[in-house]
Design a protein around this nucleic acid. Structure first.
Length: 563
RNA sequence: AGACCCAUGGUGUAAUGGUAGCACUCCGGUUUUUGGUACCGUCAGUCUAGGUUCGAAUCCUUGUGGGUCUACCA
């Protein structure tokens, strides 16, 4: 990293930022930066879209520009208003806004039709009566040039007439298309007289039955960019081959010269983003819906408890470049932890309860213990937790025959109850099956947290809840949906074979501290030593439900694994 | 196999002809009333072969590997 005059590290730019900064230096478009995010309203937004959103909105934000939201709704057969609202909600949730610039490619249908007429008049487009099969055959293949359609040399007048009659609904669906006259010998398949209008007698979610011809992507997207005077149109690598056509239309139509810039889309290990495959997971019941916390959808990640700031950070850290990539799942988790560590209140919850009776604690006594809400942030204050004779601790925090370096409770051993007392395990009570059902312990009255004069040194501190005060809750432990980093990249194997059977574990009867009675849906907490959890939207005061977003890092688990 | 794009530690991304850096992961340590956090440290990289140059991750050529393109989808 270079050092500038201010002796501060020089920020490194990604290749898009470099292009934008150069454009600004050159005064291109008056130094204006205007991007767009163009979802098709035919599905839910996922982690891949999140990356595109962060890049497009982020670039504009960084350079004082603005971003349009534009629904790319040129295919009435697959699109629906249902998705429009979900998409808008998800983008807002991610933290971005487009003010009143909510546009639809379908709003431009009249203008797009004018463009088509213009092209015909310039002799640059023609109506082709060939069948889909014939068109495909004449297109050739990447290593062989195509051949020209017999309809390619129709007169301008005839083309104008035919186009108008197409629009008027005089021809059957599939019987004719409008094609741009470019170059049938181009090595770029997209330049071989691409279809720009097709006939579809379909009801459009916005324009209704006004139109029976609809523009193709290549004749809608770039033109919409141009109409909106988008300066930098950012898209994924797969559109690289469309760019010559994008530029061709701009040149021939003599319209605003938006510039398309492609970057590599983000792939995340253990996640899939194919709309079709995601739909399968929903339809076939592998998940409970599009907002299942295991889904890579924005709505799923929201329910999972991933903060929008964490997703933005993740997209940011993944970077922008032009090579294929698979980002490790651990980076996402790291971002989620970083954000939640800063923002979430600590509470105690015992997921797998084991009863502890303090034999020397006065019957019926209850003490209120002060506990900090977030050691990272004093401004979050403290709360009180009731302490009594009967408690629950985590089953994993006791071992009858502990290995070396086990810092928790064991027979005859001592441990501190966080913000409470130090206790000593005197007796292990088992049922007939030999399972441990209760621990009988002694507490040291002079070891109270904050005024400890016992002088006892313990290695471990564990969380707990007071049995008579604890609230029962259901806790859903989520893990990655797949067991393989690239479940849909295995030839001959269906991606569903890699669905993780342990992606969800439901704990029906966990205990949480009473302060959680006031928690509202989507509130987020760190369950001390266990992970980050949020209140599920379906949670009620009668039945609280918590979803685990991510565990805390667990150094002990690693020690154990190594044996 | 036609054209186009890409190639830097395990992963991702910088270095724009001049000391290969950062983040995540991994491993080790310090602090800790969360085996968390914070902090410190270790390991580890320029795909191959040529060329240009005083000097190449960077420019050129070649090979190799990966990706994209042949929907009336976007």
């Amino acid at each position: 990293m270079e050092i500038n005059e201010a002796n501060e590290p020089k920020e490194s730019l990604n290749f898009i930022e470099e292009i934008v900064e150069e454009d600004i230096r050159n005064g291109k478009h008056g130094g204006r930066v205007h991007t767009r995010f163009p979802p098709e309203p035919n599905g839910y937004l996922h982690i891949g879209h999140a990356k595109a959103i962060v890049v497009s909105f982020g670039i504009a934000q960084k350079y004082g520009g603005i971003t349009n939201l534009r629904f790319d709704d040129t295919n009435p057969v697959t699109e629906d208003t249902e998705y429009v609202d979900a998409i808008k909600r998800d983008i807002h949730w991610l933290g971005y806004d487009w003010d009143d610039r909510e546009y639809y490619a379908s709003d431009y249908f009249p203008k797009l039709y004018e463009f088509a007429v213009d092209l015909v008049k310039k002799g640059l487009a023609y109506v082709d009566d060939s069948s889909p099969e014939e068109i495909a055959r004449m297109k050739g293949n990447p290593s062989q040039p195509g051949e020209e359609s017999p309809f390619r040399l129709r007169s301008i007048e005839e083309n104008l007439d035919l186009l108008e009659r197409m629009r008027n609904g005089e021809f059957e669906e599939g019987s004719r298309v409008l094609r741009a006259r470019v170059d049938m010998t181009s090595p770029n398949m997209h330049m071989r007289d691409p279809i720009i209008y097709r006939i579809k007698f379909a009801h459009h979610h916005r324009t209704g039955d006004q139109w029976c011809i609809y523009p193709m992507y290549d004749f809608a997207h770039g033109q919409s960019d141009s109409i909106e005077e988008i300066t930098h149109s950012l898209c994924s690598l797969e559109f690289r081959h469309h760019r010559p056509l994008y530029d061709w239309f701009i040149e021939k139509l003599e319209i605003f010269p938006s510039r398309q810039i492609e970057f590599a889309r983000m792939n995340v290990a253990f996640m899939i983003t194919s709309k079709r495959k995601l739909l399968q997971l929903v339809k076939e019941g592998y998940v409970t819906g599009w907002d299942d916390p295991r889904m890579p959808t924005l709505t799923g990640m929201r329910r999972r408890g991933y903060p929008p700031a964490a997703i933005r950070m993740f997209a940011d850290k993944a970077g922008v470049a032009r090579r294929d990539n698979i980002i490790e799942y651990e980076l996402l988790e790291s971002c989620v932890r970083e954000e939640l560590n800063r923002t979430s209140a600590r509470v105690m919850a015992v997921l797998n309860p084991l009863k502890v009776v303090l034999t020397n604690y006065p019957e019926g006594q209850v003490e209120q213990m002060d506990v900090e809400n977030n050691p990272e942030d004093d401004s979050m204050g403290t709360r009180q937790m009731p302490f009594s004779k009967e408690l629950y601790i985590e089953r994993d925090d006791f071992m009858e025959n502990p290995p070396p370096k086990y810092f928790r409770l064991a027979p005859g051993g001592e441990v501190r109850l966080k913000a409470g007392y130090i206790i000593r395990c005197d007796e292990v009570v088992k049922d007939q099956a030999g399972e441990i059902v209760e621990l009988r312990c002694a507490y040291y009255p002079n070891s109270r947290s904050g005024s400890d004069t016992s002088g006892i040194k313990v290695k471990g501190t564990i969380h707990w809840v007071s049995a008579p005060h604890a609230l029962e809750a259901e806790v859903r432990l989520y893990d990655r949906l797949f067991t393989d980093p690239t479940p849909d990249q295995h030839e001959g194997q269906d991606f569903k074979e890699f669905v993780n059977p342990e992606s969800l574990k439901v704990l029906e009867k966990a205990y949480v501290e009473p302060a959680l009675a006031e928690a509202k849906p989507m509130d987020q907490f760190q369950f001390l030593r266990m992970g980050y959890f949020s209140v599920d939207p379906d949670s009620t005061s009668a039945k609280m439900i918590f979803n685990r977003a991510v565990t805390l890092k667990d150094a002990w688990a690693k020690v154990q694994q190594k044996g």
